[in-house]
């Protein structure tokens, strides 16, 4: 039997903005080697393979692959792709579909400490992905209708720019050492070299 048209992963994606050229991939690998992620962060990261998986309607595998979640839409590959495929748009589309299907991002995104956040909105301004909104929130132990930053886990790419601007140290990435640890590490190094030099 011919199966229902439009239900394939590829059909769902191709209608999304930026995904029009999805079928044109040569599998040349330019995107993979242009992207810093596989080399530096995650060896399993491979947008070329994801495009192939989409072509073969490997829905489950695409949604559980790490690739759509790690892409941060820097578009270095877009400018290098010989077929002008907007790869980050495709990856983002897969991510959206996966979220709709109930998968969640494995990224350690930013987290707000509602007890200290003053709702100044600096982070909202600097976030390159518009993942932060300042909203009226009820915070236990603190009060009602306070302005507190909120992170959209589906948009946050864990770059940390927000934590560098926060004046009350209330927003921090979940996986990385937080500011205090970084500073501690720095001090302890400085002390040891300093001591070594004095001896």
């Amino acid at each position: 039997m011919e199966h229902e048209k439009g239900s394939d992963l590829r059909d769902l994606l191709i209608v999304l903005p930026g995904c029009e050229k999805l079928d044109m991939c040569f599998s040349c690998g330019t995107c993979v080697s242009r992207c810093p992620i596989q080399q530096k962060i995650e060896p399993a990261y491979n947008p070329r393979r994801l495009l192939k998986m989409i072509a073969l309607n490997m829905q489950q595998e695409s949604f559980t692959s790490i690739t759509p979640y790690l892409c941060s839409a820097c578009d270095l590959c877009y400018s290098a792709c010989p077929q002008e495929i907007h790869i980050s748009a495709v990856l983002n589309g897969v991510k959206k579909l996966a979220m709709q299907a109930g998968f969640s991002t494995p990224l350690k995104t930013a987290r707000v400490d509602a007890l200290t956040c003053v709702g100044c909105g600096f982070c909202e301004k600097v976030c390159p992905y518009q993942a932060i909104t300042v909203k009226e929130t009820n915070v236990p132990l603190r009060g009602k209708n306070l302005l507190i930053a909120e992170v959209d886990g589906a948009k946050c790419m864990a770059c940390g720019t927000c934590s560098s601007i926060c004046r009350s140290n209330s927003i921090e990435l979940q996986d990385r050492e937080n500011s205090e640890e970084v500073v501690q590490d720095l001090w302890s190094w400085l002390e040891t070299v300093e001591m070594g030099a004095e001896k």
Partner: peptide
């Protein structure tokens, strides 16, 4: 890699 993090820096 994060679009404009470096410009912010």
């Amino acid at each position: 890699h994060y679009k404009e993090g470096n410009l912010h820096a």
